[in-house]
């Protein structure tokens, strides 16, 4: 059992290392010299010697593989380098910006799960054919809506037209309610889709017919048989969506002018500040891998067939 856990852990670490490598190749090795890009073109009027000193200071004069090992070592120690633009340590920037983004993402994920659940339950409503139809067509609509546009529309309707949510000097909840809704809607759609599809599929399974032959009614079957079986795949989906969630958070923060990873990312891209972007990429890959691993390890609790060592003999 511990061997299988160790194996999964090893795989996760491997993916993480590969993600770091991809980020390094894209952002550090391929573009060549970030220091040159930054200072040669600028009108600071630095002399060739000054640039050379800077290059040594940033470690940009070493061969690529040495830089790779050096950067990897730094990352492992939690040192993500310095922002090329501002000179501030990236770790410090992250510490300032990460919490608000995580908070937003967490709230949005919760809201998305609730929304997906409500849609899935409505899709199984007895009677009310039109409600079922509506609940089933909502996810397609939700995925088709651009996150940033949804945010703008929500501001338009709730702040400007209805005046329900103040944009000037908002209360803390007012500041978050629209961003969370903006982010939750597109994330809920794939979850709802998977959940609805799985519930439908499980309803067609022979064991559901057996449960009904026992005298169980619709609600009983739905809650005691169908739901438990439809859940694991949905949970996996939620894990996969984490990446979308982070990307969506970046966009949402931009739309609502919230501070956080979003602004940081935008600044980094605008200024070609590769060190910052590299840290963000590796960090989000780390979060993704950690969540996938967690779900992987939780799965046997939901589905005994995946149990690492079956108890008792068959």
């Amino acid at each position: 059992m511990t061997r299988q856990v160790a194996q999964k852990l090893g795989q996760a670490l491997l993916v993480l290392l590969a993600a770091f490598t991809v980020a390094f190749v894209l952002l550090q090795a391929l573009p060549g010299d970030a220091v040159l890009i930054k200072f040669l073109g600028s009108e600071m009027g630095l002399t060739a010697e000054q640039i050379a000193e800077l290059r040594i200071a940033y470690g940009a004069d070493a061969p690529v593989w040495e830089q790779y090992l050096h950067t990897l070592g730094n990352f492992l120690r939690g040192d993500f380098g310095y922002s090329i633009r501002s000179g501030v340590p990236v770790a410090q920037l992250l510490a300032e910006n990460l919490p608000s983004t995580l908070w937003l993402a967490l709230l949005a994920l919760t809201a998305a799960c609730l929304l997906a659940l409500v849609l899935a339950l409505l899709s199984q409503l007895e009677g009310f054919g039109w409600v079922r139809g509506l609940a089933r067509s909502m996810p397609s609509l939700f995925v088709a809506v651009p996150v940033f546009w949804l945010g703008i529309m929500l501001i338009q309707v709730f702040s400007f037209q209805l005046g329900l949510v103040s944009v000037i000097a908002p209360e803390p909840w007012e500041e978050l309610v629209l961003p969370v809704a903006t982010l939750a809607v597109p994330i809920s759609a794939p979850m709802a889709q998977v959940l609805i599809r799985n519930i439908d599929a499980v309803f067609g399974e022979p064991f559901v017919a057996v449960a009904r032959a026992k005298g169980a009614r619709h609600q009983w079957v739905l809650w005691r048989h169908v739901f438990r079986n439809a859940l694991p795949a949905t949970l996996t989906m939620a894990g996969v969506l984490f990446g979308e969630l982070l990307g969506g958070a970046v966009v949402t923060e931009t739309v609502f002018g919230l501070g956080g990873l979003g602004g940081m990312t935008q600044q980094a891209v605008a200024n070609q500040d590769v060190a910052v972007l590299q840290a963000i990429v590796v960090l989000s890959a780390f979060a993704f891998v950690a969540i996938s691993l967690l779900i992987d390890l939780l799965m046997p609790l939901l589905d005994p067939r995946l149990a690492l060592r079956p108890a008792g003999a068959s």
Binding site: F207, V210, N229, L302, D303, R305
Partner: peptide, 10 residues
Amino acid sequence: DPTTSLNPVR
């Protein structure tokens, strides 16, 4: 079909 007629998670 007894293989699919029992709920696998209970």
